[in-house]
């Protein structure tokens, strides 16, 4: 197959709204009829190339492929690959492309999955590149929101925490900008505001948004609260990290003025930004998100491999 015929997922914008809605439909069908999909990827192999640590993303990809009847190979840190010897991303994927049918890659450097997609003829899935994009987390978030709210339009989304380096935030904004009547409240310390290019995108799209620093003041307006971790690994200066890490800690007390049907999402892992006391609140959806993450990745793998088991059902 020619490289230009291959579909990759580098940015969430590589998928049209119709394609995203289609993936959500397949994920819902997988939820209802998992038996229809258990042999869908028989004899297919997924390579998970994780140059940076991960629990949920890597395991959910592997679990997704195994639940589709396929198999998995890969590595879970740069130190256990030839990257430790200085091998380039392009050489690594040229090699792995001969062993696997599809590759999920996480890399600390922004743009690495794009480089990978230019050097292999198997589909590349960006499983997170630095502080840049994390499109499969966005698909996870969209599936969670769609299941909890029954829609992906007409709502106020509060994004809170590290909006500068938080790649899940950037991807979620880009994705939801394409749905009608979404209002954004961007809650962050001054130092961790969303980057200028994202503000430009919000303005260009004519989106209704505001940047604030006070979480509690914004709370009553929110339909979705998307909490994020202040990420230690994105700081070059530990002092800055220590100063900012406890800026927002969500507690039951802070939820007093929240809507009764608020949905609280978090891409996880959390450190202390959501108190464990919030876990029992029915509005907490972040562990449910992890189930959605597996099912939407199953749908994505099928889509990128061009497999349509639901049509045979």
């Amino acid at each position: 197959m020619q490289r230009d015929q291959i579909r990759n997922l580098i940015s969430i914008l590589d998928l049209s709204v119709d394609e995203i809605n289609g993936l959500i439909d397949v994920a819902n069908d997988i939820d209802q009829h998992p038996e229809r999909y258990q042999e869908a990827c028989r004899h297919k192999q997924l390579a998970t190339l994780f140059f940076e640590p991960s629990t949920r993303t890597r395991l959910s990809f592997e679990s997704a492929m195994l639940s589709l009847g396929g198999s998995v190979l890969g590595f879970s840190s740069a130190n256990s690959s030839s990257a430790a010897k200085g091998e380039s991303v392009s050489d690594t994927v040229r090699t792995v492309g001969n062993y696997a049918d599809i590759i999920a890659m996480r890399h600390p450097k922004e743009g690495a999955p794009m480089i990978a997609s230019q050097h292999t003829v198997v589909p590349i899935i960006n499983a997170g590149d630095g502080g840049h994009f994390h499109p499969t987390q966005t698909l996870t978030d969209l599936l969670t929101i769609s299941r909890k709210k029954g829609r992906l339009s007409d709502m106020t989304i509060g994004l809170c925490g590290d909006l500068k380096f938080g790649r899940t935030v950037h991807s979620l904004i880009e994705a939801t900008l394409r749905y009608p009547n979404i209002r954004y409240i961007l809650i962050s310390p001054e130092e961790l505001r969303v980057p200028e290019y994202m503000i430009d995108e919000l303005k260009e799209a004519g989106a209704d948004f505001e940047e604030v620093t006070d979480l509690e003041a914004a709370m009553p307006q929110l339909d979705i609260l998307y909490m994020t971790r202040i990420q230690k690994e994105r700081f070059f200066n530990e002092e800055d990290y220590l100063r900012l890490k406890d800026t927002y800690i969500l507690t039951p007390d802070k939820l007093k003025n929240a809507k009764s049907d608020l949905s609280i999402l978090h891409p996880l892992p959390r450190v202390n930004e959501i108190s464990v006391k919030v876990d029992e609140d029915p509005r907490a959806c972040y562990f449910y998100q992890t189930l959605c993450g597996k099912q939407i990745r199953m749908a994505l793998i099928l889509f990128l491999l061009g497999i349509h088991p639901e049509e045979q059902a």
């Binding site: 991303v89 890399h107 743009g111 630095g130």
Partner: peptide, 11 residues
């Protein structure tokens, strides 16, 4: 950008 892939892969 020190986080860009071009910062570590010279070619």
């Amino acid at each position: 950008n020190p986080r860009c892939i071009t910062s570590c892969e010279q070619e």
